[in-house]
Design a protein around this nucleic acid. Sequence first.
DNA 1: TGCAAAATGTTGCAATTGCAACAATGAAGT
DNA 2: ACTTCATTGTTGCAATTGCAACATTTTGCA
Lengths: 211, 211
Amino acid sequence: MINPFQNISPKNREKLLYTLESSRLTFPKNELILSNINQGNIIGIVIKGMMQIIKTDYNGTRTIIEELEENDIFGTIISPLSNEYDILTKEESTVYIIDYDEIKKLDLDNKSYYNQFIKNLLEIIILKIEERNNRIEIFTKKTIRNKLLEYFNIESKKNGLRVINLPFNFTDLADYLAIDRSAMSRELKYLKEEGFIEIKNHKITLLYDKY
Amino acid sequence: MINPFQNISPKNREKLLYTLESSRLTFPKNELILSNINQGNIIGIVIKGMMQIIKTDYNGTRTIIEELEENDIFGTIISPLSNEYDILTKEESTVYIIDYDEIKKLDLDNKSYYNQFIKNLLEIIILKIEERNNRIEIFTKKTIRNKLLEYFNIESKKNGLRVINLPFNFTDLADYLAIDRSAMSRELKYLKEEGFIEIKNHKITLLYDKY
DNA sequence: TGCAAAATGTTGCAATTGCAACAATGAAGT
DNA sequence: ACTTCATTGTTGCAATTGCAACATTTTGCA
Protein backbone atom coordinates (compact mmCIF):
# COMPACT_ATOMS: atom_id res chain seq x y z
CA MET A 1 0.00 0.00 0.00
CA ILE A 2 1.31 3.42 -0.97
CA ASN A 3 1.88 5.98 1.75
CA PRO A 4 -0.38 8.97 1.14
CA PHE A 5 2.41 11.21 2.40
CA GLN A 6 5.20 9.71 0.32
CA ASN A 7 7.67 12.29 -0.99
CA ILE A 8 6.39 14.83 1.49
CA SER A 9 8.72 15.84 4.31
CA PRO A 10 7.46 15.41 7.87
CA LYS A 11 7.44 19.17 8.27
CA ASN A 12 5.37 19.75 5.16
CA ARG A 13 3.14 16.90 6.12
CA GLU A 14 2.29 18.68 9.35
CA LYS A 15 1.64 21.90 7.47
CA LEU A 16 -0.58 20.09 5.03
CA LEU A 17 -2.64 18.44 7.74
CA TYR A 18 -2.96 21.78 9.47
CA THR A 19 -4.09 23.53 6.30
CA LEU A 20 -6.66 20.79 5.70
CA GLU A 21 -7.95 21.22 9.24
CA SER A 22 -7.60 17.48 9.73
CA SER A 23 -8.36 15.81 13.02
CA ARG A 24 -6.57 12.80 14.41
CA LEU A 25 -8.71 10.22 16.15
CA THR A 26 -7.99 6.93 17.87
CA PHE A 27 -10.54 4.21 18.44
CA PRO A 28 -10.39 1.02 20.50
CA LYS A 29 -10.76 -2.44 19.01
CA ASN A 30 -14.20 -3.69 17.93
CA GLU A 31 -15.86 -0.33 17.73
CA LEU A 32 -18.27 1.00 15.15
CA ILE A 33 -16.74 4.35 14.43
CA LEU A 34 -18.85 5.81 11.69
CA SER A 35 -21.17 7.73 13.96
CA ASN A 36 -18.13 9.53 15.33
CA ILE A 37 -16.89 10.89 12.05
CA ASN A 38 -19.66 10.98 9.51
CA GLN A 39 -20.39 14.60 8.87
CA GLY A 40 -20.36 15.40 5.20
CA ASN A 41 -17.78 14.50 2.64
CA ILE A 42 -14.68 13.28 4.34
CA ILE A 43 -11.57 11.39 3.46
CA GLY A 44 -10.03 9.28 6.18
CA ILE A 45 -6.48 8.05 6.28
CA VAL A 46 -5.61 5.02 8.36
CA ILE A 47 -2.45 5.77 10.34
CA LYS A 48 -2.43 2.62 12.40
CA GLY A 49 -4.59 -0.42 12.94
CA MET A 50 -7.09 -2.33 10.85
CA MET A 51 -10.73 -1.71 10.06
CA GLN A 52 -13.51 -3.14 7.92
CA ILE A 53 -16.21 -1.38 5.98
CA ILE A 54 -19.26 -3.55 6.43
CA LYS A 55 -22.83 -3.40 5.32
CA THR A 56 -25.89 -5.13 6.63
CA ASP A 57 -28.95 -5.05 4.42
CA TYR A 58 -32.65 -5.44 5.23
CA ASN A 59 -32.32 -9.24 5.03
CA GLY A 60 -29.67 -9.15 7.71
CA THR A 61 -27.07 -10.17 5.16
CA ARG A 62 -23.70 -8.83 6.22
CA THR A 63 -21.08 -8.04 3.63
CA ILE A 64 -17.53 -6.89 4.04
CA ILE A 65 -17.13 -4.17 1.46
CA GLU A 66 -13.48 -3.56 2.13
CA GLU A 67 -10.73 -4.17 4.57
CA LEU A 68 -8.66 -1.14 5.54
CA GLU A 69 -5.04 -1.27 6.62
CA GLU A 70 -2.34 1.20 7.45
CA ASN A 71 -2.05 3.96 4.81
CA ASP A 72 -5.40 3.02 3.37
CA ILE A 73 -7.88 5.74 2.66
CA PHE A 74 -11.63 5.72 2.93
CA GLY A 75 -14.40 8.24 2.86
CA THR A 76 -17.89 9.30 2.05
CA ILE A 77 -17.04 9.39 -1.57
CA ILE A 78 -14.67 6.52 -1.88
CA SER A 79 -16.93 4.12 -0.09
CA PRO A 80 -20.52 5.20 0.14
CA LEU A 81 -20.79 5.79 3.83
CA SER A 82 -24.50 6.25 3.95
CA ASN A 83 -26.30 5.06 7.02
CA GLU A 84 -26.31 1.55 5.58
CA TYR A 85 -22.59 1.25 6.11
CA ASP A 86 -20.44 0.92 9.16
CA ILE A 87 -16.75 0.91 9.87
CA LEU A 88 -15.60 -1.59 12.42
CA THR A 89 -12.18 -1.47 14.01
CA LYS A 90 -10.57 -4.89 14.11
CA GLU A 91 -7.69 -3.50 16.17
CA GLU A 92 -7.11 -0.24 17.96
CA SER A 93 -6.85 2.21 15.11
CA THR A 94 -5.80 5.77 14.48
CA VAL A 95 -7.07 7.83 11.58
CA TYR A 96 -6.88 11.31 10.15
CA ILE A 97 -10.17 12.76 9.07
CA ILE A 98 -10.07 15.41 6.36
CA ASP A 99 -12.91 17.38 4.86
CA TYR A 100 -12.90 16.61 1.16
CA ASP A 101 -13.93 20.16 0.36
CA GLU A 102 -10.71 21.37 1.96
CA ILE A 103 -8.78 19.17 -0.42
CA LYS A 104 -10.68 20.63 -3.36
CA LYS A 105 -9.90 24.12 -2.12
CA LEU A 106 -6.14 23.52 -1.99
CA ASP A 107 -4.38 26.10 -4.11
CA LEU A 108 -2.17 23.76 -6.05
CA ASP A 109 -0.02 26.49 -7.50
CA ASN A 110 1.01 27.53 -4.06
CA LYS A 111 2.90 24.65 -2.51
CA SER A 112 4.42 21.73 -4.35
CA TYR A 113 3.63 19.30 -1.56
CA TYR A 114 -0.05 19.94 -2.17
CA ASN A 115 0.48 18.54 -5.62
CA GLN A 116 2.39 15.60 -4.34
CA PHE A 117 -0.45 14.81 -1.98
CA ILE A 118 -3.04 14.84 -4.75
CA LYS A 119 -0.79 12.69 -6.90
CA ASN A 120 -0.45 10.21 -4.04
CA LEU A 121 -4.19 10.07 -3.55
CA LEU A 122 -4.59 9.38 -7.24
CA GLU A 123 -2.20 6.45 -7.08
CA ILE A 124 -3.88 4.99 -4.03
CA ILE A 125 -7.30 5.24 -5.57
CA ILE A 126 -6.11 3.58 -8.73
CA LEU A 127 -4.99 0.66 -6.58
CA LYS A 128 -8.39 0.61 -4.99
CA ILE A 129 -10.00 0.28 -8.40
CA GLU A 130 -7.83 -2.74 -9.02
CA GLU A 131 -9.01 -4.27 -5.78
CA ARG A 132 -12.60 -3.67 -6.75
CA ASN A 133 -12.01 -5.21 -10.15
CA ASN A 134 -10.56 -8.31 -8.54
CA ARG A 135 -13.63 -8.45 -6.40
CA ILE A 136 -15.87 -8.29 -9.44
CA GLU A 137 -13.84 -11.09 -11.00
CA ILE A 138 -14.72 -13.27 -8.06
CA PHE A 139 -18.40 -12.42 -8.03
CA THR A 140 -18.54 -13.20 -11.71
CA LYS A 141 -17.82 -16.85 -11.05
CA LYS A 142 -20.97 -18.91 -10.88
CA THR A 143 -20.12 -21.55 -8.27
CA ILE A 144 -18.74 -21.33 -4.76
CA ARG A 145 -15.85 -23.53 -5.80
CA ASN A 146 -14.88 -21.22 -8.63
CA LYS A 147 -15.23 -18.18 -6.42
CA LEU A 148 -12.89 -19.69 -3.88
CA LEU A 149 -10.36 -20.71 -6.51
CA GLU A 150 -10.46 -17.26 -8.06
CA TYR A 151 -9.93 -15.71 -4.65
CA PHE A 152 -7.01 -18.05 -3.99
CA ASN A 153 -5.42 -17.20 -7.31
CA ILE A 154 -5.72 -13.48 -6.74
CA GLU A 155 -4.26 -13.68 -3.27
CA SER A 156 -1.55 -16.03 -4.44
CA LYS A 157 -0.54 -13.65 -7.21
CA LYS A 158 -0.17 -10.78 -4.78
CA ASN A 159 2.91 -12.22 -3.12
CA GLY A 160 3.80 -14.89 -5.62
CA LEU A 161 3.41 -17.69 -3.10
CA ARG A 162 1.23 -20.76 -3.13
CA VAL A 163 0.45 -20.19 0.50
CA ILE A 164 -2.26 -17.75 1.47
CA ASN A 165 -2.47 -16.10 4.83
CA LEU A 166 -6.13 -15.34 5.21
CA PRO A 167 -6.63 -11.79 6.45
CA PHE A 168 -10.03 -12.99 7.63
CA ASN A 169 -11.55 -15.68 9.73
CA PHE A 170 -13.81 -18.00 7.74
CA THR A 171 -16.99 -16.28 8.78
CA ASP A 172 -15.65 -13.00 7.43
CA LEU A 173 -14.31 -14.65 4.31
CA ALA A 174 -17.79 -15.88 3.49
CA ASP A 175 -19.12 -12.36 4.03
CA TYR A 176 -16.39 -11.00 1.79
CA LEU A 177 -17.20 -13.44 -0.99
CA ALA A 178 -20.93 -12.93 -0.44
CA ILE A 179 -21.65 -16.62 -0.02
CA ASP A 180 -23.23 -18.68 2.72
CA ARG A 181 -20.76 -19.63 5.41
CA SER A 182 -21.87 -23.22 5.81
CA ALA A 183 -21.98 -23.78 2.07
CA MET A 184 -18.47 -22.39 1.86
CA SER A 185 -17.36 -24.66 4.65
CA ARG A 186 -18.76 -27.64 2.76
CA GLU A 187 -16.98 -26.65 -0.43
CA LEU A 188 -13.67 -26.15 1.39
CA LYS A 189 -14.04 -29.65 2.76
CA TYR A 190 -14.50 -31.04 -0.76
CA LEU A 191 -11.48 -29.08 -1.99
CA LYS A 192 -9.41 -30.57 0.81
CA GLU A 193 -10.70 -34.10 0.17
CA GLU A 194 -9.94 -33.80 -3.54
CA GLY A 195 -6.42 -32.66 -2.79
CA PHE A 196 -6.67 -29.16 -4.18
CA ILE A 197 -5.81 -27.38 -0.99
CA GLU A 198 -4.55 -27.80 2.52
CA ILE A 199 -5.69 -25.73 5.45
CA LYS A 200 -3.81 -25.14 8.65
CA ASN A 201 -5.08 -22.52 11.04
CA HIS A 202 -5.84 -19.69 8.67
CA LYS A 203 -3.19 -20.61 6.13
CA ILE A 204 -4.27 -22.17 2.87
CA THR A 205 -1.77 -24.00 0.69
CA LEU A 206 -2.61 -24.44 -2.96
CA LEU A 207 -1.66 -27.88 -4.23
CA TYR A 208 -2.85 -27.54 -7.81
CA ASP A 209 -0.81 -26.04 -10.64
CA LYS A 210 -1.19 -22.45 -11.57
CA TYR A 211 -3.48 -21.92 -14.48
CA MET B 1 -19.49 12.27 -15.93
CA ILE B 2 -16.80 14.84 -15.26
CA ASN B 3 -14.79 16.15 -18.16
CA PRO B 4 -11.14 15.25 -17.65
CA PHE B 5 -10.20 18.61 -19.18
CA GLN B 6 -12.56 20.73 -17.14
CA ASN B 7 -11.09 24.07 -16.10
CA ILE B 8 -8.36 23.71 -18.67
CA SER B 9 -8.44 26.06 -21.65
CA PRO B 10 -8.53 24.50 -25.13
CA LYS B 11 -5.07 25.90 -25.76
CA ASN B 12 -3.60 24.41 -22.60
CA ARG B 13 -5.40 21.20 -23.27
CA GLU B 14 -3.58 20.90 -26.57
CA LYS B 15 -0.28 21.67 -24.90
CA LEU B 16 -0.99 19.08 -22.25
CA LEU B 17 -1.84 16.38 -24.76
CA TYR B 18 1.29 17.23 -26.68
CA THR B 19 3.47 17.07 -23.59
CA LEU B 20 1.99 13.71 -22.71
CA GLU B 21 2.69 12.44 -26.21
CA SER B 22 -0.88 11.31 -26.48
CA SER B 23 -2.28 9.77 -29.60
CA ARG B 24 -5.80 10.19 -30.87
CA LEU B 25 -7.44 7.13 -32.35
CA THR B 26 -10.83 6.44 -33.89
CA PHE B 27 -12.38 3.00 -34.16
CA PRO B 28 -15.46 1.78 -36.02
CA LYS B 29 -18.44 0.20 -34.29
CA ASN B 30 -18.22 -3.37 -33.01
CA GLU B 31 -14.47 -3.61 -32.97
CA LEU B 32 -12.19 -5.13 -30.36
CA ILE B 33 -9.67 -2.39 -29.93
CA LEU B 34 -7.39 -3.60 -27.21
CA SER B 35 -4.82 -5.17 -29.51
CA ASN B 36 -4.38 -1.75 -31.12
CA ILE B 37 -3.48 0.11 -27.97
CA ASN B 38 -2.21 -2.26 -25.34
CA GLN B 39 1.44 -1.50 -24.91
CA GLY B 40 2.32 -0.96 -21.29
CA ASN B 41 0.61 1.25 -18.78
CA ILE B 42 -1.78 3.54 -20.53
CA ILE B 43 -4.69 5.73 -19.65
CA GLY B 44 -7.34 6.16 -22.28
CA ILE B 45 -9.85 8.97 -22.44
CA VAL B 46 -13.07 8.48 -24.35
CA ILE B 47 -13.71 11.55 -26.50
CA LYS B 48 -16.70 10.24 -28.37
CA GLY B 49 -18.68 7.05 -28.61
CA MET B 50 -19.38 4.14 -26.31
CA MET B 51 -17.37 1.07 -25.41
CA GLN B 52 -17.52 -1.90 -23.08
CA ILE B 53 -14.76 -3.57 -21.14
CA ILE B 54 -15.59 -7.25 -21.32
CA LYS B 55 -14.02 -10.41 -20.08
CA THR B 56 -14.46 -13.98 -21.15
CA ASP B 57 -13.09 -16.61 -18.81
CA TYR B 58 -12.04 -20.21 -19.44
CA ASN B 59 -15.64 -21.36 -19.01
CA GLY B 60 -16.72 -19.08 -21.81
CA THR B 61 -18.56 -16.89 -19.32
CA ARG B 62 -18.71 -13.37 -20.60
CA THR B 63 -18.89 -10.48 -18.19
CA ILE B 64 -19.24 -6.79 -18.81
CA ILE B 65 -16.77 -5.22 -16.43
CA GLU B 66 -17.65 -1.66 -17.26
CA GLU B 67 -19.38 0.48 -19.77
CA LEU B 68 -17.45 3.49 -21.02
CA GLU B 69 -19.02 6.69 -22.25
CA GLU B 70 -17.83 10.07 -23.33
CA ASN B 71 -15.26 11.56 -20.91
CA ASP B 72 -14.77 8.21 -19.26
CA ILE B 73 -11.26 7.03 -18.63
CA PHE B 74 -9.84 3.54 -18.74
CA GLY B 75 -6.47 1.95 -18.72
CA THR B 76 -4.08 -0.79 -17.83
CA ILE B 77 -4.18 0.25 -14.25
CA ILE B 78 -7.72 1.35 -13.86
CA SER B 79 -9.14 -1.76 -15.41
CA PRO B 80 -6.75 -4.64 -15.57
CA LEU B 81 -6.27 -4.89 -19.27
CA SER B 82 -4.40 -8.14 -19.27
CA ASN B 83 -4.96 -10.44 -22.18
CA GLU B 84 -8.11 -11.71 -20.54
CA TYR B 85 -9.87 -8.44 -21.19
CA ASP B 86 -11.15 -6.78 -24.29
CA ILE B 87 -12.61 -3.45 -25.17
CA LEU B 88 -15.50 -3.51 -27.58
CA THR B 89 -16.77 -0.41 -29.32
CA LYS B 90 -20.56 -0.25 -29.27
CA GLU B 91 -20.48 2.80 -31.51
CA GLU B 92 -17.79 4.48 -33.54
CA SER B 93 -15.49 5.83 -30.87
CA THR B 94 -12.58 8.19 -30.50
CA VAL B 95 -10.07 8.00 -27.70
CA TYR B 96 -6.87 9.60 -26.52
CA ILE B 97 -4.21 7.18 -25.40
CA ILE B 98 -1.68 8.47 -22.88
CA ASP B 99 1.29 6.70 -21.39
CA TYR B 100 0.73 6.65 -17.65
CA ASP B 101 4.44 7.11 -17.03
CA GLU B 102 4.25 10.43 -18.86
CA ILE B 103 1.58 11.53 -16.40
CA LYS B 104 3.79 10.51 -13.50
CA LYS B 105 6.65 12.50 -14.99
CA LEU B 106 4.63 15.72 -15.24
CA ASP B 107 6.42 18.46 -13.39
CA LEU B 108 3.51 19.72 -11.39
CA ASP B 109 5.26 22.84 -10.21
CA ASN B 110 5.69 23.96 -13.74
CA LYS B 111 2.22 24.49 -15.17
CA SER B 112 -0.98 24.91 -13.21
CA TYR B 113 -3.03 23.08 -15.80
CA TYR B 114 -0.99 19.96 -15.08
CA ASN B 115 -2.34 20.12 -11.56
CA GLN B 116 -5.83 20.69 -12.74
CA PHE B 117 -5.57 17.62 -14.92
CA ILE B 118 -4.43 15.42 -12.05
CA LYS B 119 -7.19 16.81 -9.86
CA ASN B 120 -9.73 16.00 -12.56
CA LEU B 121 -8.44 12.46 -12.90
CA LEU B 122 -8.77 12.06 -9.14
CA GLU B 123 -12.40 13.14 -9.21
CA ILE B 124 -13.22 10.83 -12.09
CA ILE B 125 -11.61 7.87 -10.43
CA ILE B 126 -13.47 8.55 -7.21
CA LEU B 127 -16.68 8.32 -9.21
CA LYS B 128 -15.49 5.04 -10.64
CA ILE B 129 -15.03 3.67 -7.15
CA GLU B 130 -18.62 4.55 -6.44
CA GLU B 131 -19.70 2.67 -9.53
CA ARG B 132 -17.71 -0.35 -8.44
CA ASN B 133 -19.22 -0.19 -4.97
CA ASN B 134 -22.70 -0.15 -6.44
CA ARG B 135 -21.72 -3.16 -8.44
CA ILE B 136 -20.58 -4.97 -5.33
CA GLU B 137 -23.89 -4.09 -3.67
CA ILE B 138 -25.67 -5.93 -6.44
CA PHE B 139 -23.45 -9.00 -6.37
CA THR B 140 -23.97 -9.20 -2.66
CA LYS B 141 -27.62 -10.01 -3.12
CA LYS B 142 -28.30 -13.71 -3.07
CA THR B 143 -31.15 -14.11 -5.53
CA ILE B 144 -31.64 -12.96 -9.09
CA ARG B 145 -34.75 -11.10 -8.02
CA ASN B 146 -32.88 -9.14 -5.38
CA LYS B 147 -30.04 -8.41 -7.76
CA LEU B 148 -32.47 -7.00 -10.27
CA LEU B 149 -34.28 -4.92 -7.68
CA GLU B 150 -30.99 -3.56 -6.35
CA TYR B 151 -29.93 -2.67 -9.86
CA PHE B 152 -33.25 -0.94 -10.48
CA ASN B 153 -32.94 1.05 -7.28
CA ILE B 154 -29.43 2.19 -8.06
CA GLU B 155 -30.34 3.24 -11.58
CA SER B 156 -33.50 4.90 -10.34
CA LYS B 157 -31.59 6.91 -7.78
CA LYS B 158 -29.19 8.21 -10.40
CA ASN B 159 -31.79 10.40 -12.08
CA GLY B 160 -34.50 10.32 -9.44
CA LEU B 161 -37.02 8.73 -11.76
CA ARG B 162 -38.97 5.54 -11.43
CA VAL B 163 -38.32 4.83 -15.08
CA ILE B 164 -35.08 3.23 -16.10
CA ASN B 165 -33.63 3.48 -19.55
CA LEU B 166 -31.51 0.40 -19.86
CA PRO B 167 -28.11 1.22 -21.29
CA PHE B 168 -27.94 -2.44 -22.24
CA ASN B 169 -29.91 -4.99 -24.16
CA PHE B 170 -31.06 -7.86 -21.95
CA THR B 171 -28.28 -10.17 -22.97
CA ASP B 172 -25.74 -7.60 -21.88
CA LEU B 173 -27.63 -6.82 -18.71
CA ALA B 174 -27.37 -10.45 -17.68
CA ASP B 175 -23.63 -10.34 -18.38
CA TYR B 176 -23.34 -7.16 -16.35
CA LEU B 177 -25.15 -8.70 -13.39
CA ALA B 178 -23.25 -11.96 -13.82
CA ILE B 179 -26.38 -14.08 -14.00
CA ASP B 180 -27.78 -16.48 -16.55
CA ARG B 181 -29.73 -14.72 -19.25
CA SER B 182 -32.60 -17.18 -19.40
CA ALA B 183 -32.92 -17.28 -15.65
CA MET B 184 -33.02 -13.49 -15.63
CA SER B 185 -35.66 -13.52 -18.31
CA ARG B 186 -37.75 -15.87 -16.21
CA GLU B 187 -37.40 -13.66 -13.14
CA LEU B 188 -38.32 -10.54 -15.09
CA LYS B 189 -41.46 -12.32 -16.23
CA TYR B 190 -42.41 -13.08 -12.62
CA LEU B 191 -41.74 -9.47 -11.61
CA LYS B 192 -44.03 -8.30 -14.39
CA GLU B 193 -46.74 -10.82 -13.49
CA GLU B 194 -46.61 -9.79 -9.84
CA GLY B 195 -46.98 -6.15 -10.77
CA PHE B 196 -43.59 -4.95 -9.58
CA ILE B 197 -42.42 -3.64 -12.92
CA GLU B 198 -43.48 -2.85 -16.43
CA ILE B 199 -41.24 -3.25 -19.44
CA LYS B 200 -41.57 -1.48 -22.74
CA ASN B 201 -38.77 -1.74 -25.23
CA HIS B 202 -35.79 -1.21 -23.02
CA LYS B 203 -37.55 1.01 -20.52
CA ILE B 204 -38.42 -0.41 -17.15
CA THR B 205 -40.98 1.29 -14.94
CA LEU B 206 -40.89 0.55 -11.24
CA LEU B 207 -44.37 0.16 -9.79
CA TYR B 208 -43.42 -0.61 -6.20
CA ASP B 209 -42.74 2.01 -3.55
CA LYS B 210 -39.25 3.12 -2.84
CA TYR B 211 -37.69 1.40 0.08
C1' DT C 1 -8.64 -21.22 35.43
C1' DG C 2 -13.19 -21.45 34.05
C1' DC C 3 -17.10 -19.66 31.83
C1' DA C 4 -19.56 -17.46 28.03
C1' DA C 5 -19.51 -16.12 23.48
C1' DA C 6 -17.80 -16.59 18.96
C1' DA C 7 -16.24 -19.37 15.34
C1' DT C 8 -16.21 -23.61 12.91
C1' DG C 9 -17.96 -28.03 11.17
C1' DT C 10 -21.80 -30.83 9.51
C1' DT C 11 -26.05 -32.26 7.27
C1' DG C 12 -30.88 -32.60 5.29
C1' DC C 13 -33.80 -30.34 2.49
C1' DA C 14 -36.29 -26.94 -0.12
C1' DA C 15 -35.50 -23.10 -3.16
C1' DT C 16 -33.02 -21.14 -6.77
C1' DT C 17 -30.08 -21.30 -10.58
C1' DG C 18 -27.55 -22.59 -14.67
C1' DC C 19 -27.71 -25.03 -18.67
C1' DA C 20 -29.45 -26.76 -22.86
C1' DA C 21 -32.50 -26.71 -26.43
C1' DC C 22 -35.66 -24.59 -29.12
C1' DA C 23 -39.30 -21.17 -30.85
C1' DA C 24 -40.39 -16.54 -31.79
C1' DT C 25 -39.36 -12.00 -32.61
C1' DG C 26 -36.60 -8.08 -34.00
C1' DA C 27 -32.74 -5.75 -36.33
C1' DA C 28 -29.38 -4.85 -39.92
C1' DG C 29 -27.76 -4.87 -44.40
C1' DT C 30 -28.06 -5.57 -49.39
C1' DA D 1 -38.52 -6.59 -49.26
C1' DC D 2 -35.98 -10.44 -48.14
C1' DT D 3 -32.63 -12.97 -45.86
C1' DT D 4 -29.58 -13.69 -42.22
C1' DC D 5 -28.05 -13.02 -37.75
C1' DA D 6 -28.81 -11.37 -33.10
C1' DT D 7 -31.84 -10.96 -29.41
C1' DT D 8 -35.52 -12.45 -26.61
C1' DG D 9 -38.80 -15.74 -24.58
C1' DT D 10 -39.78 -20.27 -22.64
C1' DT D 11 -39.32 -24.62 -20.21
C1' DG D 12 -37.64 -29.10 -18.07
C1' DC D 13 -34.27 -30.73 -15.33
C1' DA D 14 -30.06 -31.53 -12.83
C1' DA D 15 -26.78 -29.14 -10.03
C1' DT D 16 -25.82 -25.89 -6.62
C1' DT D 17 -26.97 -23.02 -2.88
C1' DG D 18 -29.01 -20.98 1.16
C1' DC D 19 -31.04 -21.87 5.28
C1' DA D 20 -31.85 -23.93 9.59
C1' DA D 21 -30.50 -26.55 13.24
C1' DC D 22 -27.24 -28.50 15.92
C1' DA D 23 -22.55 -30.36 17.69
C1' DT D 24 -17.91 -29.22 18.46
C1' DT D 25 -13.97 -26.36 19.00
C1' DT D 26 -11.67 -22.09 19.89
C1' DT D 27 -11.25 -17.59 21.78
C1' DG D 28 -11.69 -13.80 24.90
C1' DC D 29 -11.86 -12.22 29.23
C1' DA D 30 -13.37 -11.95 34.21
